[in-house]
Nucleic acid binder design. Structure first.
Lengths: 201, 201
DNA sequence: GTCTATAGGGGGATAGAC
DNA sequence: GTCTATCCCCCTATAGAC
């Protein structure tokens, strides 16, 4: 599974063969097929294994913040932080998948594979909806349409940031640091807060 | 080439075979290989054919705006508009590649294929540098690091927006319209201007 | 330049022994 | 459950006739 995570993240679904994978993991090809039934099922399982706990943490954090805040919505910066922090934590921690799972999630959002649609919308759409309900309370000036466009901009920025985080050091000749998780997180939170609180026009 | 553009955009490089492609285009497989030498070369050619004119328009527009503005930098909203409008124009016009080339470009930024690196950095990096020089004059409050992070956020938002534009109607149950090019463009410009002009902290 | 035919190498999945 | 061996498919690329 760890090997699959890495190879799928680096080369994509179609760019990775079960043979490479079995070699890398030092397991037998037939055994792998026996356990996972098919390449598609393995791919889905690799994603599922990580996405579930991450979204659980996100939703629990949000629920807790909403309860603590009583009638008012929790501060927007907190909400954004709760929404994105688990991805950065996963990126930092190899035991949670490290950069590979984050890259793979970012990739699976961009790369439209027919069999991932259901999993991704089941796992992400409901989470995004919950967060949207809270964020919306901080952005009453926006029409639903304008809100959804801005949400799409923020999601795109997040996906791109997570997918390229490990290269930012090289891409900027050291100006941006790939290992400054708290700094990047804080920058992103300020960015997203700014986007949602900007005037409707 | 048109068939290749569509298939590569929808299924990626590894997900598209020269056979599908030859069938779709109603040409002979061997003939296609004769003209393009290899699948990689074809892929690069498909991208190159569109990226060159698009970046030419972007750079010409910028140059002209800079000349007209004299000593002052051209207004930030204009600069952003010049930077992104050509992509929306291409999306609208099937003769310029339509949504397929835009999807393919968005995809090629996410999907790291070893042989596209040189082309993409040659074509995009220099363009991005020119625009950055002008945008930077409107964002003197930002450190180089903060500027590059925000640029990365905006690029990610653009890439995601372009890649999913054709689905926005469905994804939002009709609230956002995929065919409202001027509206989306205007929203994105306001978004990006807001990001670059927001306080440093 | 364009075709048919095929070389030569993977690919995913499975049968059947252990 | 785990292995070896193999089926059968599709792939890219090319040779060689026209």
């Amino acid at each position: 599974m760890d090997a699959a995570e890495r190879l799928f993240a680096e080369h994509g679904f179609n760019g990775t063969s079960l043979r490479q994978l079995a070699t890398e993991a030092e397991v037998n090809l037939a055994a792998a097929n026996y356990h996972f039934n098919s390449k598609e099922a393995l791919y889905l399982e690799v994603i599922r294994r990580r996405i579930r706990p991450i979204n659980q943490v996100r939703l629990d954090g949000l629920r807790q913040a909403v309860e603590q805040a009583g009638d008012a919505p929790p501060p927007l910066a907190n909400v954004i932080d709760l929404m994105i922090r688990p991805f950065f934590e996963a990126h930092r921690d190899p035991q949670s998948g490290g950069r590979h799972i984050v890259q793979l999630l970012a990739r699976s959002m961009t790369e439209p594979l027919p069999f991932t649609n259901k999993l991704l919308s089941d796992e992400f759409h409901s989470t995004l909806t919950r967060f949207s309900q809270v964020i919306r309370r901080h952005a009453p000036q926006l029409t639903p349409e304008e809100y959804l466009w801005r949400l799409s901009f923020v999601v795109g920025a997040l996906q791109h940031t997570l997918g390229t985080l490990h290269q930012m050091g090289d891409l900027t000749r050291g100006i941006c640091r790939s290992d400054d998780y708290e700094g990047t997180l804080a920058r992103f939170v300020r960015f997203a807060v700014g986007v949602f609180t900007a005037p409707a026009d």
